[in-house]
């Protein structure tokens, strides 16, 4: 097995490009899901909102203006092959510099503040990013960049349910979360569900669930059934596009599960707004 060397500068350049791309171009499967939503939405105000959302995506793509003024926290999911050796500087530094460059060059809004509960001074280049790294087999690096806006993230939750509560409690938790969020989370939503593991594992799974292709259900039938049940329940809440009332409150429910302690049932609900932006690259 030969080790493949990757220059940190290559990573920085790719990350900078991903920041701009993700913030100005909606993923194709999301555009398809929104176009479908216009067809099935029953509320006139809801349909109008969906049409505006689609028109916004067209303008952003064409003019390179950010889809939303909230260009988010820079969340970066990295899968790094164990046969890769990064040269020049650390992986985290390379990514962080890419975020700084991308947000400045792309005229993206910088939303990060340094001291969460005191000074809240803007760091001016949207760093530091939130990086999650997995070591996998192979000699490539996969980077997924998710600009995560505050509106939907603020209304997300982690709950430690009782093991005996079962699927019904999960459906109820998601419904309560979406209801409390109302229009402020910018529905129609993508709902990331992390089930099992521990407190932080569930939250991370929920985040990772947000980037699954929208037309797919979980491969495990039992989990797919839960996803469908949750989606049906959410779309009967009546919240609708941007909370103006309607029948499309969520476009997709993506769940990932993981084994957990016999005493636990951790569940994380990560809400993602209709501007469910992300971009990825394999180096």
């Amino acid at each position: 097995m030969t080790i493949r060397e990757i220059d940190a500068n290559t990573i920085t350049d790719h990350v900078a490009g991903l920041c701009v791309k993700a913030n100005t171009k909606l993923p194709d499967d999301l555009v398809v899901a929104l176009e479908k939503a216009v067809q099935i939405e029953k509320s006139p105000l809801g349909r109008q909102a969906l049409q505006i959302i689609l028109e916004n995506a067209r303008i952003a793509r064409q003019e390179g203006t950010p889809l939303c003024q909230d260009c988010g926290v820079a969340v970066v999911l990295v899968e790094i092959g164990q046969d890769v050796h990064i040269t020049g500087r650390s992986l985290d530094d390379a990514i962080s510099e890419g975020v700084s460059l991308g947000y400045r060059q792309g005229y993206l809004r910088k939303s990060m503040v340094s001291k969460p509960f005191s000074k809240r001074e803007n760091t001016r280049d949207n760093t530091p990013p939130v990086i999650h790294t997995d070591i996998v087999s192979g000699n490539k690096i996969k980077i997924i960049f998710i600009p995560k806006g505050g509106g939907a993230e603020n209304m997300s939750r982690v709950a430690m349910l009782k093991p005996g509560d079962g699927a019904e409690a999960i459906v109820k938790l998601v419904a309560e979360t979406v209801k409390a969020a109302g229009g402020s989370s910018c529905p129609p939503l993508i709902i990331g569900l992390g089930i099992g593991g521990t407190l932080e594992k569930a939250a991370l799974l929920a985040k990772k669930a947000l980037v699954r292709p929208l037309e797919n259900w979980n491969e495990d039938i039992e989990i797919a059934e839960l996803e469908q049940k949750v989606l049906k329940k959410i779309n009967r809440l009546g919240i609708g596009p941007l909370g103006m009332g309607g029948t499309v409150t969520a476009l997709a429910v993506n769940a990932i599960s993981y084994p957990c302690h016999m005493a636990s049932l951790p569940v994380a609900v990560n809400l993602q707004c209709h501007s469910a932006r992300y971009a990825e690259v394999v180096i």
Partner: peptide, 13 residues
């Protein structure tokens, strides 16, 4: 009044 969350590019026009 409410306007359209996530439609910042359109609203900028």
């Amino acid at each position: 009044l409410v306007t359209y969350g996530g439609a910042g590019a359109l609203l900028s026009k």
